[in-house]
Design a protein around this nucleic acid. Structure first.
Lengths: 206, 206
DNA sequence: CGTATCTTGTGAACGATTTCACAAGCAGGG
DNA sequence: CCCTGCTTGTGAAATCGTTCACAAGATACG
């Protein structure tokens, strides 16, 4: 199987969302040009991206919204629920947790952990915040597949090491540090400061 | 002036952080190899990135931590404070606001707006949440340069249109939609669902 | 002062990604 | 049933980004 670039995967995710909108708007069919326009890319790019996985369209007609929706869902692995744990129930963690949209998109947050004894035992959504010490065992017992790390920078590497040891295969990191994970574990970072600095650079170089 | 890729800017931002750590640890000097190792890249990459802006190192020695710190700050436009507005004071907006680290890094949140009358008038940090109707005028009057958009997806395009019209030149968007901005305005997106889907893809294709 | 060691800065090679361009498939109308 | 208009899928070309490899500057030391 050929290698798929991260940017291609990002765009697939985007197409998925655009297709859901088109579907909600009642469209039966959609062309690469329409997807491109709504997604801010080009029709050739759309076709190339899709061609990495097969050929789903009809010449002269475009793509069936329904079918493409299902295909992309399958490609992205979104036809099942993923078991997710949230680590860190601070401001950001809580905000993420309350964003119930994840659930609808296949990511079920099944456990929340925090180190702060003040927070342990409090309710968050339908769950109870659990103690840090329970984490390692719980991640294993509940076969958590994805960890969202929303702890302070100093704690993040330690947390991710434990999480990996507990068998979690993918990590979404919000701490502003570069984490090391063993090969085979997938890591993505969300770093707001870094994004702001990107904006600063753009404004500055005019 | 040659074009600088977004990835190069991201890495500069990263180097800046690594340099701050090195500085805090008392290092006087640092080599491209050391930066590379800590940043998860290669020494050639580090040197190439820096060479886009000049030559700051001493052969045989490496870079002066202090000097490189200042140089990168200058490149990224971080030697001044930026005037930032936060639009949307929901869970996510509040979480972002309370993350005071931005301030220290040169991004001063000077105004918060929300459409919800319940929220308007309430205190958030040192600021008062202001009404949506005041926004356009306030952005201009206070010469806001960067807007952080943390409103629901449906509202985001409308908000960003107004923000752009009010003279804001850079937008950090948290809404899960593809926004259109005129050329000359810089847009960055933070889209957590998209990141999670990237993880799903990786887990799914094993 | 000469030699050994280190590390930068940078063309050139390489690899990856995006864009181009066009043959081929499909639908609709006359 | 053929012609027109539209759109896909995909090699080939172009562009962009990364890695290689090495000359040259800098220091340390005998």
């Amino acid at each position: 199987m050929k290698k798929i670039s991260e940017s291609a995967v990002r765009r697939l995710s985007l197409y998925l969302r655009l297709l859901q909108e088109a579907d909600a708007a009642g469209a039966e069919t959609i062309s690469s040009g329409q997807l491109a326009e709504r997604g801010g890319t080009t029709s050739a790019q759309v076709r190339k991206d899709l061609s990495l996985f097969g050929s789903f369209g009809k010449r002269g007609l475009g793509y069936s919204v329904q079918e493409l929706l299902e295909r992309i869902r399958a490609i992205l692995g979104l036809q099942r629920q993923w078991r997710v744990a949230l680590i860190g129930a601070g401001k950001l963690g809580s905000a993420l947790f309350s964003y119930r949209d994840f659930e609808a998109r296949g990511f079920e947050i099944r456990a929340v952990f925090d180190r702060d004894p003040e927070k342990v035992g409090t309710a968050l959504g339908g769950l109870t915040v659990r103690a840090d010490e329970e984490m390692d065992r719980a991640l294993r017992d509940e076969a958590i597949e994805i960890a969202i790390v929303a702890v302070p920078g100093e704690a993040a590497q330690h947390v991710v090491d434990r999480v990996v040891k507990a068998g979690v295969g993918a990590v979404l990191n919000f701490a502003p540090v570069r984490l090391k994970v063993p090969r085979g574990v997938t890591l993505r970072n969300v770093d707001v400061t870094l994004e702001l600095e990107g904006l600063s650079f753009a404004l500055n170089s005019r």
